[in-house]
Design a protein around this nucleic acid. Structure first.
Length: 683
RNA sequence: GCCGAAGUAGCUCAGCUGGUAGAGCAGCUGAUUCGUAAUCAGCAGGUCACGGGUUCGAGUCCCGUCUUCGGCUCCA
């Protein structure tokens, strides 16, 4: 994890598994990619019939996809690694060979690619890959010892340059990620320059396991899932909810100071709303299916009435068409002009009626909201807006529901109900830069508070070739807003990287990646520029010149969702939350349970709670050591060990989780200190 | 959604090739009055994820469903 690459390189490198394009590989990637070849070599020694597909370096190592009747399991790793060791010991040169397309195809047909020599069956995946290499590109092979593979490289000089490696796991993957293609076994491994770095990496994984938010969430009683409630629907226990409260407090303070206004909107809306926004049918798969209201008699009656009229019209249209079809359209128009006109009229009326009927029915379908923007757009529209109202910043901790595919669910990181630190900023083009910059500054402020030292903003832009398909067809606005975003990012010294062709449908976006204290990456938040949907909603404001204009909209959620953000924080802090965030900030542990001492303890608890400090009292009959132990296990931030000595001196003996016994302090001094630390959001 | 693996008490886990369920912690009750990470004893706790099948007999074998995990795909 300690390689010298910049974050930008990291991010760029992860883009292209196929080395045909993109930037040259870093040294570590060359090592890993070379190791994939060594892995293939080893597998072939054990199972000569193996068919290899692709074996690129990836974020934390490499993999090679292989088709093989034998199902490789972790028990096989030892013998595969032993074969790999032989290959690295032999220190073969990675030899690069250029050859013609014809020669490459011949070799693949003889089964010599991704192989130790000619075989009875062709190297089918390699054959396919060659056929997909553009005509103007050079085809190259790489050889190490007996092993020959189709590969664009680059590699390290010799197999011995692969310092240290280990296989990690095996999973299945479809060839080219398409489920219509054959299913392959994907063998994962990792490699480093030396053994020390390899060991560090595995130590980090161990540490990540200890900090796993699912494990700590259970142990610390932060949240829970229940089968009867449903998959991907976390419920927050009081200790977890306490963290949520603090995050909301932080966001509300920050946003208030930045001129945001808080709003509240329902969790559901009629289908019409999502037809207007354009989410339906495009995004329908990611939404919970609609609730249908059956009991709206008026609307059902209206729909039925329309149904009657529509069927009449249909009959009329059919009758005319039957006549005309015999005559042919041109003749019909000439000779029966009047009837023809009536047909056209009936057709267009039918269209309107059908639309009205569909509209009526859609009014009885309600969807759980998957995002807050449509509701917020309606709030914008609820009041006549003038340029004087802009920028208008509407903020809400809205709860969204997204029907994530079952295989996507993962602890708190990928859920179906999520509370977003959401806001929509409506502004003019002139205001955009300042607004966007202010949002970025808010991110930096949060990074500081949470001790996030490494981050990158992935700035996703559009591909002009896909205008009108993947992206809203408005070239001018794309270029203009992208230029504005780029300008803000550059001028504010934000660490960012540009990712082409990954923008949202309606505008450029920024995904915010942060790294936890142990160096694992999380995408926690997103900022999106939207120059399309406000227009769909017909949002306008009066300009100074008394004309109407459509505002730009910035979607932003610096703290992302509670679910993912707290998941991140759990790992980041290893469950040892700073005082202001700690679910239980203070626990009072009286030595013994004699009445005067308990009374003293209770008085302190009450005083703390009067100042909104989450203070608890352990009045159990446990011995003091046991009380300390259980408080430590729950990672209570501060423990007050109270005995007669403390009571007599009006003092408290302070113990902090992770720091141990800090000795006695005057009661008032301690309380003032706690309040100040919480207010300043210090540790 | 697809492929693979797993699911035993609130938690962590044991239960061999089928013979009818067990520990530690947590909980409850009582004793213990202890100055910085676990005092002692007793009690209670399970439709072995759910549903079906094979068998004299299923936690154990087979099938289906659900959930979780590892991947793939997805994340406008």
């Amino acid at each position: 994890m300690n390689d010298e690459r910049s974050v930008a390189e990291d991010v760029a490198a992860e883009k292209g598994p196929h080395a045909h394009e993109g930037p040259p590989m870093t040294e570590l990637e060359r090592i890993r990619h070379s190791c994939a070849h060594v892995l293939a070599t080893a597998i072939l020694r054990l199972w000569p019939e193996a068919q290899f597909a692709a074996g690129p370096p990836v974020e934390n190592g490499f993999y090679y996809d292989v088709e093989l009747p034998h199902r490789i399991s972790p028990e096989d790793f030892e013998k595969i690694e032993a074969e790999m060791k032989k290959e690295t010991k032999a220190n073969h040169v990675f030899e690069r060979v250029e050859l013609s397309r014809g020669d490459a195809l011949e070799m693949a047909k003889r089964g010599e690619l991704g192989a130790l020599g000619a075989r009875s069956s062709p190297s089918k995946f390699k054959l396919d890959i060659i056929q997909n290499i553009p005509e103007d590109e050079t085809i190259t092979l790489y050889r190490n010892g007996d092993f020959t593979d189709l590969c664009a490289g680059p590699h390290v000089m010799r197999t011995g340059n692969i310092g240290a490696f280990r296989l990690t796991n095996v999973a299945s993957a479809y060839y080219k990620g398409d489920e219509k293609n054959p299913q392959l076994q994907r063998i994962y491994g990792t490699a480093f320059k030396n053994k020390t770095q390899l060991d560090e990496y595995f130590a980090m994984l161990e540490e990540a396991k200890k900090r796993d938010h699912r494990k700590l969430g259970k142990e610390l009683e932060l949240f829970t899932f229940d089968d009867d409630v449903g998959p991907g629907l976390p419920m927050w226990l009081p200790r977890g909810a306490a963290i949520i409260e603090e995050l909301e407090k932080l966001a509300k303070e920050t946003e208030f100071a930045a001129g945001y206004q808080r709003v509240r909107t329902p969790h559901i809306a009629r289908e019409n709303l999502y037809l207007t926004s354009g989410h339906l049918p495009y995004y329908a798969d990611s939404m919970f299916p609609p609730m249908e209201l059956k009991y709206d008699a008026t609307e059902e009656h209206k729909a039925a009435e329309l149904e009657g009229i529509i069927s009449e019209k249909l009959k009329a249209v059919a009758a005319f068409e039957a006549i005309f079809s015999k005559l042919g359209m041109e003749e019909a128009r000439r000779d029966h002009f009047e009837k023809f006109e009536r047909l056209q009229q009936n057709k267009s009326e039918l269209e309107i009626l059908n639309k009205r009927r569909e509209d009526l029915l859609s009014r009885s379908r309600y969807y759980l909201k998957a995002m807050n923007c449509p509701h917020h757009h309606k709030l914008f529209a609820a009041v006549p807006r003038s340029y004087r109202d802009l920028p208008l910043r509407l903020a809400e901790y809205g709860t969204n529901y997204r029907y994530e595919q079952s295989g996507e669910l993962f602890g708190l990181m990928r859920v179906r109900s999520l509370q977003m630190n959401d806001a929509h900023i409506y502004c003019t083009e002139e205001q955009f830069e300042d607004e966007f910059n202010a949002v970025n500054q808010m991110y930096l402020k949060y990074f500081k508070i949470f001790g996030i030292e490494k981050y990158v903003m992935r700035f996703s832009t559009h591909d002009p070739a896909e205008l009108g398909q993947k992206f809203v067809d408005n070239s001018e606005l794309w270029l203009k807003t992208e230029e504005m975003v780029r300008g803000v990012l550059q001028r504010s010294g934000i660490n960012y990287v540009e990712v082409p062709n990954e923008a949202a449908f309606y505008g450029p976006k920024i995904d915010v990646q942060v790294w936890s204290a142990i160096g694992r990456e999380f995408t926690i938040a997103t900022n999106q520029v939207d120059f399309a949907v406000p227009a769909r909603f017909g949002l306008v404001y009066k300009t100074r010149a008394n004309t109407e204009a459509t505002p730009l909209c910035i979607h932003r959620a610096p703290l992302g969702t509670h679910e993912r953000f707290i998941g991140f924080l759990i790992e980041h802090y290893a469950g040892n939350f700073p005082l202001w965030l700690a679910p239980e900030q203070v626990r009072i542990l009286p030595i013994g349970d004699e009445a005067p001492l308990l009374e003293y303890a209770r008085a302190i608890q009450n005083e703390l709670r009067a100042h909104e400090v989450r203070a608890e009292l352990d009045a159990s009959s446990d011995h003091i050591k046991a009380k300390i132990s259980s408080a430590e296990q729950m990672k209570v931030h501060t423990m007050l060990v109270l005995g007669n000595r403390d009571m007599e001196a009006n003092a408290v003996s302070v113990r902090e989780h992770g720091k141990g016994n800090l000795g006695a302090r005057p009661r008032n001094e301690f309380i003032a200190g706690v309040l100040a630390a919480i207010k300043q959001r210090r540790g």
